[in-house]
């Protein structure tokens, strides 16, 4: 464990909690892409199948449980509890264009041709593009609530910090996982224009609005 990975996990956890609280407190999931949340639930499910078979540490296991439980809770709030506030008309990204290519790629490029490893690889590839429906929805509605932009910032920063974690691990542990690194780079690049808008607008107290 190193500071970058720890801060990355904290950032990821806070993004998940910000979203849960936003929906629960405001009793509304307006502006939130249910499709991205569905993809995140798939990402965590396919990545943490070794939850019971492969104990790394108490921290690792408890974080996995929290991630899986909170992602299902978020999907449940969007599609069940507060579905009346779900903005389906603007959440129209074709997720099959994300799921199918990443599934095929996970069969072609992986570390081990075993079910668990292919599912892990699929989860890594899917996570790198899972935010696209949400970013697409923000660009379609032309704006995002400030709390939603904080959620997106924390979520984007988490994988950016992981990039530094991989530099650290390459340097000091001679460990590197090219699949995770390349996917992490793609994931971070997808946030770049959002990061720009967040830093130039939201941090100056303005509302996040995209040029429609």
């Amino acid at each position: 464990m190193n500071i970058f990975r720890f801060l990355g996990d904290i950032s990821h956890l806070s993004a998940i909690i910000i979203l849960l609280l936003k929906i629960w407190k405001s009793r509304s999931c307006a502006g939130i892409s249910g499709k991205s949340q569905l993809l995140f639930a798939i990402v965590f499910t396919t990545r943490y199948l070794d939850l019971f078979t492969n104990f790394i540490s108490f921290y690792n296991t408890s974080m996995k449980v929290v991630y899986v439980a909170s992602s299902y809770a978020t999907v449940w709030m969007i599609y069940s509890k507060f579905k009346a506030t779900y903005d389906g008309n603007h959440d129209t990204f074709r997720v099959e264009f994300l799921i199918v290519p990443t599934a095929i790629l996970s069969f072609l490029v992986n570390h081990d041709f075993t079910p668990l490893e292919i599912l892990w690889t699929f989860s890594i590839y899917l996570e790198s593009v899972a935010i696209l429906p949400q970013l697409f929805m923000v660009s379609k509605t032309g704006e995002a609530e400030t709390i939603t932009s904080h959620y997106l910032f924390a979520l984007g920063i988490y994988r950016t910090l992981y990039l530094f974690n991989w530099i650290w691990r390459y340097q000091f542990e001679e460990f590197f996982d090219l699949i995770a690194i390349v996917a992490g780079l793609v994931q971070t690049v997808l946030y770049c224009d959002f990061f720009y808008l967040y830093i130039t607008k939201v941090l100056k107290g303005k509302k996040l609005s995209l040029p429609a």
Binding site: D50, K64, H111, E117, Y162
Partner: peptide
């Protein structure tokens, strides 16, 4: 193929 180390990252 070398036994792949278990993934220790979240």
């Amino acid at each position: 193929h070398a036994v792949h180390i278990p993934h220790d990252e979240l």
